[in-house]
Design a binder for these strands. Structure first.
Length: 295
DNA sequence: GATGAGCGA
């Protein structure tokens, strides 16, 4: 706690900084301007700071007010007990090797965050999803209601018909890194114009988007095989956009089969070749190309 | 033995 003594006059903390309001409009003969200025001494090596100032009391008389404050004490009591406790811990990581770093270990994040202003014209927004999609031409009025939630194309197609729907965000990044073009066939007219709104990263629901082209069906799964298990098993062949185990709606139990969608068809082929007939959980897996789901 | 769920007109 700050050790503060104020002589001649009781005062509040808030008074300390109000050096321009002496007298408070009281009707004395003296004015604040005639009072000696406030003098601050210290803080010294012990953190003691003295302030000497002159004020007018209620009767308009000048009084000297001396305030003594232990500055360090104040700073120390600003932290909680637990925080103070943590200061006693042994340093680790970078802080253990660099005394100086201990005080400021905050680092700049390498993550690139694009802030876009939708209304600003001509702003080139660079993001992984945008790079993959060519710009779309100006669109017809009235078509704007149809907005693809994957590539943000307006008036082109619905999300379910998006030519890029099979590329989950993680795979998108992989494609950028590997310089592999996206679904190159046909109408891939999705995309966004620079300066337009760029949708946020797709969520979990979009991560699981199915991809009939590269999907395999796996049957003869044991009851307790979960999607994570399939991911682990099939993921070794290449990136997946979806792992799904069919569940009974009523019991929630596995129906013994599931589906996996690969980013690359070749990976799906290899998975079929390797895992069809593969013993898993004491059962023999059956892995084939999945038929497109009927409407 | 067996072919999936879900965000909009």
């Amino acid at each position: 706690m700050a050790a503060t003594t104020a002589k001649h006059q009781t005062m509040r903390w808030s008074d300390l900084d109000e050096d321009d309001d002496y007298g408070g409009g009281g009707g004395g003969g003296l004015s604040a301007l005639q009072l000696p200025p406030r003098v601050v001494i210290g803080p010294d090596e012990n953190g003691i700071k003295k302030t000497v100032e002159y004020r007018l009391n209620e009767e308009g008389k000048a009084v000297r007010v001396t305030t003594t404050t232990r500055v360090r004490e104040v700073a120390r009591t600003r932290v909680t007990k637990r925080a103070a406790e943590r200061r006693g811990w042994a340093k680790f990581g970078d802080a253990a090797h660099n005394d100086d770093a201990g005080a400021r270990l905050t680092v700049v994040s390498p993550e690139e965050i694009v802030l876009e202003r939708p209304s600003a014209p001509g702003i080139a927004v660079v993001s992984s999803s945008l790079v993959l999609h060519p710009l779309i031409p100006a669109l017809d009025k009235g078509a704007a209601l149809m907005v693809c939630r994957i590539c943000n194309a307006k008036g082109k197609h619905w999300t379910s018909k998006c030519p890029n729907k099979d590329f989950a965000p993680l795979q998108l990044d992989a494609l950028v890194d590997n310089n592999i073009p996206p679904n190159s066939g046909g109408d891939n007219g999705g995309g966004s114009r620079p300066g337009k709104y760029v949708p946020p990263k797709p969520r979990e629901s979009e991560m699981r988007r199915r991809n009939d082209e590269n999907s395999v069906r796996v049957t003869n799964l044991s009851e307790d095989t979960r999607e994570e298990d399939l991911r682990e098993l099939f993921g070794s062949f290449g990136p997946l956009t979806r792992a799904y185990v069919a569940l009974d709606h009523r019991t929630g139990e596995s129906r013994g089969f599931g589906f996996l969608s690969f980013v690359y068809r070749e990976d799906a082929e290899r998975a079929i070749a390797k895992l069809n007939g593969y013993g898993y959980d004491s059962l023999i897996l059956n892995v084939e190309w999945a038929a497109p789901r009927p409407n």
